[in-house]
Amino acid sequence: MFAIERLNKIKELLLAQKRVDVYELSEKFSVTEVTIRRDLDKLEQKGFLVKTYGGAVLNDKLNSLPNASSGDTEQKFVEEKRMIGKIAAQMIEDGEAVFLSAGSTCLEIARNIKGKKITVLTNDLAIGLELKDAPGVKTIVIGGDLIPLSTMLVGGFALQMLKGIYVNKAFLGVKGAQLDSGYTVSHYEEAMILQEVARISSEIIIVADYSKFNVKGFARLGDLTMAKKVITNTQLPNEYKKYYFEQAVKLFTTFDFR
């Protein structure tokens, strides 16, 4: 990958996630951390980001622009997440207790379940705020340590809150998915929370847009067979469609929602 392509990819990630991590970018693009830091220096000089310890965040001025995007590709990326949210919401029945993991994809699920009578458990402050005015939704935000530059809660206190409770369905967002390394997330503490959630859930459902496949995050969550249902997009690489079919994993895509 040429340097200019890598810079554009970093910009796309920043627009989608508002923050990036040097180590994760180094792994994703198969270059040294020194190279990534130089890339971030260039983008900071252009006013696109602000460097932080171990990474960078989107420049507040860009973050406040309602139409800030990297073009048609980024807009489509956001729309695909919205479609995943609509599919997932249809799987939730009144009276159920569900877990929504931290992240923008599960946030889209939250935006589509406000008319239901359910209990929602989450470790994402943003999801809690999204559901605060939903009359039929009982929202429980598990406490814990706040991951810097995010709305995600993790740690021992969060794990303790999960003891002795059960949920019908757990919708888990992931950082990456690969045939050899399985599902991965950005933080080890996050993996611990989601593994415990998987243990207390009757059904696990992975929600991941197509860009997450053939990507590896920092911490391993589990095999690709840990969930019997996956919600993604029609752009999913064919090797994963074949693998899921062979492993009897039900695949739901956004094709019918375009």
Score class of each variant (00 low, 15 high):
H187E: 07
E96I: 00
M83S: 07
I113P: 01
A68V: 14
F171N: 06
K229S: 15
L131W: 00
F157R: 08
A134L: 00
H187Q: 03
K228Y: 04
G85M: 02
V207L: 03
S202F: 01
D72Q: 09
P135H: 00
Y183G: 01
S69T: 14
I142N: 02
S201G: 07
L14A: 12
P66N: 05
Y166S: 13
T139N: 01
S69F: 03
A227Q: 04
A16W: 10
I92V: 15
L172W: 07
K114E: 01
E196S: 11
G55W: 03
V215W: 06
E74W: 14
A134H: 01
A89Y: 01
Q75M: 11
V141F: 11
E24K: 03
M152L: 12
S70F: 10
L121I: 15
Q235D: 12
T35W: 03
V249M: 05
A248Y: 10
T254Y: 05
G128Q: 01
I92Y: 09
F255L: 14
Y23W: 14
L159A: 08
F245H: 06
V197E: 04
L236D: 09
K76W: 09
T184W: 10
S202Q: 09
F171S: 03
D72S: 15
G222V: 02
Q235G: 13
L125E: 10
K11L: 15
L224T: 05
T105R: 02
E246V: 09
M1Q: 02
D133W: 14
Y244Q: 07
F2V: 08
I231A: 06
E74C: 05
Q247R: 11
N63G: 10
D145S: 07
D256R: 00
M226F: 15
S26C: 06
L194E: 10
R19V: 09
E12R: 05
S101E: 01
N63Q: 11
V31P: 08
G222M: 12
T234H: 13
D145R: 04
R82N: 14
A198E: 12
S181C: 03
V197K: 02
E96K: 00
T151F: 15
F99E: 01
L236N: 14
E93F: 07
I87C: 05
R82H: 10
G144A: 03
E27V: 15
R6T: 04
L100K: 04
T225W: 00
I147N: 07
G47C: 13
G54C: 07
K11D: 12
I142T: 13
G144I: 05
G182T: 06
P135N: 03
T151R: 06
R199E: 14
Q195H: 07
T254H: 03
A198R: 08
K76E: 15
Q17L: 11
F245G: 01
I84F: 02
